[in-house]
């Protein structure tokens, strides 16, 4: 049996705030981060937008042009290290792994690049903008800024990307391919994403009227969650705070975050929106926060929404599952 994987730091950027603490506090209090999109021109779209930030507060090196997806990833990484009380991943540089999941990558920049070159011709292509438009640009920037010279992958498996990033992070540790892994997901809202979304979008300005999966449409969101993963022995040896344990497991847990209608089912994204490739990563962060706070985040009861769906409920659960991943906390929590 593979050694347990410890989550020793969480960097979360979402409509619930910048950092794990505001994310966890707002989740526990049932505070919604949904609001009308700042780019709305006609009918307001209800989205989970990250609040304005000063990027310089989070960068370790000066940057020129950055796509918003890259910005959110860089902020999440810095927040993760601060949360872990570290300045660098706790491993030799060639043993520091990185797995980033993103559904759309730097699509907004890629679109702008294409529009410019189509209009003016290939000679007027901008090298900097092109290099900031790749699916793997956020991961490469993270590697450069944090000297992550080990196991390295960008996953772009649609909405599954963030969850799969954790699976591969766990796998890389189990197979001995890395000693510490920064893993998670990221995606940003953009006019291109919203214009291209091929399904009804939630409208209005009342976040409490929003029910995920209901006929009123989807509230899109944006964000990033990057978690620091280590083997149990390594985390213990350096005296790290273990926020939770993570494993790949299809067995039932005490409760789960998904849409299968099980009695104890939560949809934390009701509070921050559907965040494409970041969804699974944010869901895992939400499980950690909920288990540690002994609450169930907002419930959804399928066809008959519970009256209390906006009221987090007390819980004694010590494990929870999001699809193939199980998060658990020690009973003392």
């Amino acid at each position: 049996m593979a050694e347990r994987v410890a989550i020793t730091g969480l960097g979360v950027v979402s409509a619930l705030g910048l950092g794990y603490e505001p994310f966890a506090e707002n989740l526990a209090a049932g505070v919604s981060g949904l609001a009308p999109w700042s780019g709305s021109e006609a009918e307001p779209l209800l989205v989970g937008e990250v609040e304005p930030y000063d990027l310089r507060d989070y960068l370790v090196a000066e940057k020129g042009y950055l796509d918003r997806t890259s910005e959110l990833a860089l902020i999440a990484a810095q927040l993760c290290l601060r949360h872990a009380g570290l300045e660098a991943l706790p491993a030799a540089r060639e043993r520091r792994g990185l797995v980033v999941g993103t559904q759309f990558g730097c699509m907004a920049t890629a679109t702008h690049y294409c529009q410019r070159v189509r209009k003016r011709g290939p000679r007027f292509a901008t090298p900097l903008v092109f290099s900031q438009s790749f699916l793997n640009t956020p991961a490469s920037l993270l590697s450069i800024d944090y000297d992550l010279a080990g196991y390295h992958t960008t996953l772009t498996s649609g909405p599954e990307s963030g969850r799969q990033a954790f699976e591969l992070g766990v796998l890389a540790l189990a197979l001995g391919q890395a000693d510490a892994v920064l893993a998670g997901g990221v995606d940003a809202l953009s006019a291109e994403l919203i214009a291209g979304y091929d399904a009804p979008l939630a409208t209005g300005d009342d976040p409490e009227a929003y029910v995920p999966g209901a006929a009123g449409g989807t509230a899109l969101g944006e964000g990033a969650a990057l978690l620091l993963l280590e083997r149990e022995a390594a985390a213990t040896a350096r005296g790290a705070t273990v926020w939770a344990w993570l494993e790949r497991d299809d067995e039932p847990a005490d409760w789960q975050a998904n849409d299968n209608g099980a009695p104890l089912t939560a949809a934390p994204w009701a509070l921050y929106g559907e965040c494409a490739g970041a969804s699974g990563a944010l869901a895992i962060a939400a499980l950690v926060a909920s288990l540690r706070a002994c609450i169930l985040p907002p419930l959804r009861g399928g066809a008959e929404p519970l009256e209390s769906r906006w009221e987090p409920q007390d819980s004694t659960a010590t494990s929870a599952r999001y699809e193939s991943l199980r998060v658990s906390v020690d009973a003392a929590g």
Binding site: G158, L193, G196
Partner: peptide
């Protein structure tokens, strides 16, 4: 993305998954 106007085709184009 080179040819698509903003719309579902653009989003599908960017979704490698």
């Amino acid at each position: 993305l080179w040819n698509e106007p903003a719309g579902p085709g653009q989003l599908n184009a960017a979704d490698a998954g």
